[in-house]
Amino acid sequence: MWWGIVLVILGLVVGIALGLNLPLVIPQAYGKYLGVAVLAALDSVFGGMRASLEGRFDNAIFLSGFFVNACLAAGLVFLGDRLGVELYTAAIVAFGVRLFQNLAIIRRHFLGRKK
């Protein structure tokens, strides 16, 4: 368990350092796809946390959900833009709602009061 926390913190620090120092720059027009991808990734992470707290954590689902959700979210928003449909807002709302739901469930778990 402690190894896990250390690994997570180490991964976060290395990832943030990489992201801040990479000489790669994404055009502003693609910034919103990145934003949606981040939202999807955060949702996956909180989903994973909730699953582990509920005792039904599946590594394969977690790992695939993280990347596939992020890529799919960004891809769908991109497709929506090509088609003239504002899928961006839909993605934000969907992931936002799920995120807050997951957070609420995690909070309840920590408070020890199951629904």
Binding site: W3, G4, L7, V8, I9, L10, G11, L12, V13, V14, G15, I16, A17, L18, G19, L20, L22, V25, I26, Q28, G31, L34, G35, A37, V38, A41, L42, S44, V45, G48, F57, N59, F62, L63, F66, F67, A70
Partner: peptide, 24 residues
């Protein structure tokens, strides 16, 4: 395996967050 996946996801999340922060 779970530890590796946790580290990998933490890395990816950190990277994505920092990168989005920069872009935004």
């Amino acid at each position: 395996k779970e530890l590796v996946s946790l580290g990998l996801i933490a890395l990816a999340l950190g990277f994505l967050l920092a990168f989005t922060y920069r872009t935004a």
